[in-house]
Design a protein around this nucleic acid. Structure first.
Length: 860
RNA sequence: GCCUGGGUGGCGGAAUUGGUAGACGCGCCGGACUCAAAAUCCGGUGGCAGCAAUGUCGUAAGGGUUCGAGUCCCUUCCCAGGUACCA
C-alpha cells in the first residue's frame, strides 16, 4: 500500500476487533470501572443519520481512552425496537413488525460497526426479545404490587383516520405526526403509573446530579412543585364547600370572586335556574375547543356567572362564583379564589366582567401596571396589614388552620403517567382480568408473549389489535381456574428504555432483571450521552423506575445516570437565500412581511459580507445566510454512508469531533471533512513518506529535545482535553504535533508510538494500522496511555509582552532561569527601543510583573 | 411573557485564576512541482493608515470596576432551545 486508503484499512480492523472480541468487557471486578452509555437508538428504516455518530464518537473516544488508562469499561449498545413505525408499515404492507425490526437492527448494527465503535457486542439487548421484555413485565408487576400501577378512565388522543391512539408526543398541533390527520380527545380505560408518588424524590435528587442545568431546570418545571394553602369557601344554605389551592393565601382578603373549571363537579349543582342556559352553553363551547384552539385563544378570557355565591372565610363577604376555562380542571382542586389585585389573569377577567378589584399588597409609588405581583406591605387585609408576603403567608395559614377552614398544601404540575397504548408492537401487560378485576400473571408464567394476529389494525369496535387474538385473550386464572381475559393494551415505547442500562450489566442473567453482584460494581452509569430532546420524558421516566427498583432492593443507587451530556444537533450546510417578488429580488428583511415571495438559492460566490449582514455581490440587497435542520424535504441531509465511502470512518469521526464543542449546535461542512481527511493523509506520510518513494520514516534513534517537547505538549493537551470532553481542541493539538513533526527528517519510534496511542481514540483504524506496521502483533486497545513529563515541556526562554499603560509596546524573550527575577525582567523590558520611546519624558508610577506572563509599566 | 444557553475574522471555532484576542481547520491570495491539471509542499491572510518601522480601531451595543476586560458588574438589542392561563 503506498498511500492512505481507509477503505482497505478500516474493514480489516473492524473484522479484527469482532473476531478477537477486543472490546469484550472483563468479568473481574479488580479494576476500577467506568460505565459509559449511549442513548438507546430506535432502529428506524432510514438508517443512521450524521447526528448519531456525534454522540457515539464522543463516548467511543472516552471508552477507548479509559481502557488505556486501566479502567474496566462497560460500553454497550442495543435496540429500542418496539414502536409505531414498524407497526404502521405492517398495517400498510402486512409485513410482520418483527421482520421489519430484524432487518432494521441488522442495518443499524452494520452501520455502527462500519464506524468502528468499540461496543461489547456480546451485551447487545433488544426490547422486542421475549427474554428482555420478560423483565420489563416483571418490573411492571413490581409497580402493580406496590399500587403504583392502576386502571383509570382517561382521555386519550384518538385518531379516527389511523384507527389508533397516539401518544402526546405523536400529536403535533392537534394532528397526527404521521399523515397529519385530526386527533380528538376520547375517554378510555387506561393503565396509569403513579409517578406523582415519587414527585418529591424526583425533584430533590436532581440536586446531586452532574447534569446540564437546563435539563435539571426543565425537569423541575415539569414536576412543578408549588407550596401554598388549601382554603375552604362555604356556600350559603348548602353543605358543600368549594376548596381552592393557592400559592398566595396572603391575598385572601382580596378575593372578590371564585372561578370553577367548566368540568368541576359542583357546577351543575350550584348553577341557578336563571343562569342554567348560559352556563350549559358555555360548558359546551369550552368542551369543543381543541387543544390547538385553547392555545390560540389565550388572548381573550371568557367565562359565565353561575348565579351562586360563596363566603370568603376571612371576612364573611359574599363573592360570586363563575366558571371559566382559564381554570384547568386537572390542576389543584379545579377551582380558584380570584384575586385580581395580585394576579394578572384575574385582573384581566375582572376588568372584562366588571368585578371589583381590591389591592392587598401596597405597590411601590412608581408602579404603573395593573395587577401587582411583587412584594410589599399587606393592605386591606385585617390581621395581615403591614406584614410582607412571607410573614402574611405564615400568619394567615396559622389562622386558617386554627379556624378549620384551610391548611398548608403542596401541589404538583406532574400528572400520573398514562402507560397503555392500543397497539400491537409493544410489550403485553402481564395482567389478566378475572371477574372484571385486574390480576397479576404469576412470575413463573412470564413472559407473556405477543400473540400472532391476522391484522395489525385495531378492531371495528376500537379495541386494540391484540383483541383479535381470541385464543390468546381468553384464558384461565391459574390460581382459581376461573375464566379470565388477558389485558389487550400494550406498553408504550418508553417502557423498554426505562431500564435497559441495567440489562447491559448482566444481559443473560436469569434470576432477575439484573445480577445484583454485578449491579453493585457497575452502577451508576458514569457518563450518559444523548440528545436534549429526551430531557424530560425518557430521563424522568427512567429515574422513576430506577427509584422504584431501589425501593424493591433491586438496585443499589438512588439515581441511574450520574453524569449526563447532550450532544448538539448537526445542521445542514450553510445556505444563502435571496427572495424574489414579481421577478424582482427584494431584501431579506422585507421578504418576511411580503406575500407571495419566492426563495432563490444562491451560491457562496454570489454573496459578500457587508457590515453585519450578507448581501448579493455588488448590491445592497440583504440575503439570508443560515444553516437549517437537516430534512428530507429540504434536501440537505448528509448520509454517513456516503461520507465513509468518500473519506473513511476515521475522517467522519474526526470531523464530527473537530467541528466544535460537543454540546453545541453546528452546521455541517463537506470542506471541513476534507480538511481532517488531509490531516490523516499527513499522518500517514509522516510514517511512510509520500507514497512515491515508499520510505519508512520511523527510526530507532534517540529523540531530541525538540521532539520530546512536541510530543509531551501533545500528551498533556490531548489528555486534559479528553478528560474535559473538549475533543475539538484535542484534535487541534494532534494537528499541531503533526505539523511540527513534518519538518523533521525522521521520527524516532519513542515519539511515534506514543503519538499513535494519542491518535487512536479519535482515528482507531488508522492508529491500529500504524501500530501494526511498526511491528506490533496485538491491538493497541489496551496499551498504556502515555504520561507527560514536565521536564520536557520547559523551554529555554519565555516570550512575554511588555505593556505601557496597558497597551502592548514590545515583546521580550526572557531566559527560563531568569523569569522569576522581577528586577531582571523589568530591566530588560525598559531597554526595549520601542518601550523607551513611550517612557521618554514620563514618570513611572507603577511596575507590574506577572511572572511568565506580562510586564506593565504605568506612567504619567 | 418566563426559564436555559449563546453572540469573537469571509466561515467552523481557540483563548488557565482578568494578563500579547483570533490557536487549529476551512476559504482566499501568492509561490514551488507539472506540458497542463489534480494531489502535495512553502509563504501570507481581522479592518484602516503607512514603502516600512509602527500606529490606530476591533470580541452584539452602551456604560462601569481595574495598571490591564472576550473574560467581572449594570443596562439594552439579537439568535437558539424549552415552556406557556399550573392559581
Amino acid at each position: 500500500m503506498s498511500s492512505y486508503d481507509p477503505s482497505k484499512i478500516e474493514s480489516r480492523w473492524q473484522n479484527y476487533w469482532l473476531e478477537n472480541k477486543t472490546f469484550k468487557t472483563l468479568e473481574n471486578h479488580d479494576k476500577p470501572k467506568y460505565y459509559i452509555l449511549d442513548m438507546f437508538p430506535y432502529p428506524s428504516g432510514s438508517g443512521l443519520h450524521v447526528g448519531h455518530p456525534e454522540g457515539y464518537t464522543a463516548t467511543d473516544i472516552l471508552a477507548r481512552y479509559k481502557r488505556m488508562k486501566g479502567f474496566n469499561v462497560l460500553h454497550p449498545i442495543g435496540w429500542d425496537a418496539f414502536g409505531l413505525p414498524a407497526e404502521q408499515y405492517a398495517v400498510k404492507t402486512g409485513t410482520h413488525p418483527r421482520s421489519t425490526t430484524e432487518r432494521n437492527i441488522k442495518r443499524f448494527r452494520e452501520q455502527l460497526q462500519m464506524l468502528g465503535f468499540s461496543y461489547d457486542w456480546d451485551r447487545e439487548v433488544d426490547t422486542t426479545d421475549p427474554d428482555y421484555y420478560k423483565w420489563t413485565q416483571w418490573i411492571f408487576l413490581k409497580l402493580f404490587e406496590r399500587g403504583l400501577a392502576y386502571e383509570d378512565e382517561q382521555p386519550v388522543n384518538w385518531c379516527p383516520k389511523l384507527g389508533t391512539v397516539l401518544a402526546n408526543e405523536e400529536v403535533i398541533d392537534g394532528k397526527s405526526e404521521v399523515g397529519r390527520y385530526p386527533v380528538v380527545r376520547r375517554p378510555m380505560r387506561q393503565w396509569v403509573l403513579k409517578i406523582t408518588a415519587y414527585a418529591d424524590r424526583l425533584l430533590e435528587d436532581l440536586d446531586d446530579l452532574d447534569w446540564p442545568e437546563s435539563t435539571k431546570e426543565m425537569q423541575r418545571n415539569w414536576i412543578g412543585k408549588s407550596i401554598g394553602a388549601e382554603i375552604e369557601f362555604a356556600i350559603p344554605d348548602r353543605d358543600e364547600k368549594i376548596r381552592v389551592f393557592t400559592t398566595r393565601p396572603d391575598t385572601v382578603f382580596g378575593a372578590t370572586y371564585m372561578v370553577l373549571a367548566p368540568e368541576h363537579q359542583l357546577v351543575d349543582e350550584l348553577t341557578t335556574d336563571e343562569q342554567r342556559g348560559e352556563v350549559e352553553s358555555y360548558i359546551e363551547f369550552a368542551g369543543q375547543k381543541s387543544d390547538l384552539e385553547r392555545q390560540e385563544l389565550t388572548k381573550e378570557k371568557t367565562g359565565v356567572f353561575t348565579g351562586a355565591y360563596a363566603i370568603n372565610p376571612v371576612n364573611n363577604k359574599e363573592i360570586p362564583i363563575w366558571i371559566a376555562d382559564y381554570v384547568l380542571a386537572h390542576y389543584g382542586t379545579g377551582a380558584i379564589m380570584a384575586v385580581p389585585g395580585e394576579d394578572e389573569r384575574d385582573w384581566e377577567f375582572a376588568e372584562k366582567y366588571d368585578i371589583p378589584i381590591i389591592r392587598t399588597v401596597q405597590p411601590p409609588d412608581d408602579f404603573q401596571g395593573k395587577a401587582y405581583t411583587g412584594d410589599g406591605p399587606s393592605i386591606n387585609s385585617g390581621i395581615l396589614n403591614g406584614l410582607n408576603i412571607t410573614e402574611s403567608k405564615t400568619k394567615i395559614i396559622e389562622w386558617l388552620e386554627d379556624n378549620g377552614v384551610g391548611k398548608k398544601s403542596v401541589n404538583y404540575k406532574l400528572r400520573d403517567w398514562l402507560f397503555s397504548r392500543q397497539r400491537y408492537w409493544g410489550e403485553p401487560f402481564p395482567i389478566i382480568h378475572v371477574d372484571g378485576k385486574p390480576k397479576a400473571v404469576p412470575e413463573k408464567d412470564l413472559p407473556v408473549t405477543l400473540p400472532e394476529v391476522d391484522d395489525f389494525q385495531p378492531t371495528q369496535t376500537g379495541q386494540p389489535p391484540l383483541a383479535r387474538a381470541k385464543n390468546w385473550v381468553e384464558t384461565t386464572d391459574p390460581e382459581t381456574g376461573k375464566k379470565a381475559l388477558r389485558e389487550t393494551n400494550t406498553m408504550p415505547q418508553w417502557a423498554g428504555s426505562c431500564w435497559y442500562y441495567l440489562r447491559y450489566i448482566s444481559p443473560d442473567f436469569e434470576g432477575g432483571p439484573v445480577d445484583q453482584q454485578e449491579e453493585k460494581y457497575w452502577m451508576p452509569v458514569d457518563l450518559y450521552v444523548g440528545g436534549s430532546e429526551h430531557s424530560v420524558l425518557h430521563l424522568l421516566y427512567a429515574r422513576f423506575w430506577h427509584k422504584v427498583l431501589y425501593d424493591c432492593g433491586v438496585v443499589s443507587t438512588k439515581e441511574p445516570f450520574q453524569r449526563l451530556v447532550h450532544q448538539g444537533m448537526i445542521l445542514g450546510e450553510v445556505e444563502y437565500t435571496a427572495y424574489e417578488k414579481d421577478g424582482k429580488i427584494i431584501s431579506a428583511e422585507k421578504a418576511a412581511e411580503t406575500e407571495g415571495v419566492k426563495r432563490v438559492p444562491l451560491s457562496e460566490n454570489d454573496v459578500e459580507k457587508k457590515g453585519d449582514r450578507f448581501v448579493m455581490k455588488g448590491t445592497e440587497i440583504t440575503v439570508d445566510s443560515k444553516a437549517h435542520k437537516m430534512s428530507k424535504s429540504r434536501g440537505n441531509v448528509i448520509n454517513p454512508d456516503d461520507v465513509v465511502k468518500s473519506y473513511g470512518a476515521d475522517s467522519l469521526r474526526l470531523y464530527e469531533m473537530f467541528m466544535g464543542p460537543l454540546e453545541q449546535v453546528k452546521p455541517w461542512s463537506t470542506k471541513g471533512v476534507e480538511g481532517v481527511n488531509r490531516f490523516l493523509n499527513r499522518v500517514w506520510r509522516l510514517f511512510f513518506g509520500d507514497g512515491v518513494e515508499e520510505k519508512y520514516n520511523i527510526t530507532d534513534s534517540e529523540a531530541n529535545k525538540e521532539q520530546l517537547k512536541a510530543l509531551h505538549e501533545a500528551i498533556k493537551k490531548v489528555t486534559e482535553d479528553i478528560e474535559g470532553m473538549r475533543f475539538n481542541t484535542a484534535i487541534s493539538a494532534l494537528m499541531i504535533f503533526v505539523n511540527e513533526a513534518n519538518g523533521w527528517k525522521s521520527v524516532p519510534r519513542s515519539v511515534a508510538e506514543p503519538f499513535v496511542i494519542l491518535l487512536s481514540p479519535f482515528a482507531p483504524h488508522l492508529a491500529e494500522e500504524l501500530w501494526s506496521r511498526m511491528g506490533h502483533k496485538e491491538s493497541l486497545a489496551y496499551e498504556k496511555w502515555p504520561v507527560y513529563n514536565q521536564e520536557y515541556l520547559k523551554s529555554e526562554s519565555i516570550e512575554m509582552a511588555v505593556q505601557v499603560n496597558g497597551k502592548v509596546r514590545a515583546n521580550i524573550s526572557v531566559p527560563a532561569d531568569e523569569f522569576k527575577n522581577k528586577e531582571f525582567v523589568i530591566g530588560l523590558a525598559k531597554q526595549q527601543k520601542n518601550i523607551q520611546r513611550y517612557l521618554d519624558g514620563t514618570t513611572i508610577i507603577k511596575e507590574i510583573y506577572v511572572p511568565g506572563r506580562i510586564v506593565n509599566l504605568v506612567v504619567k
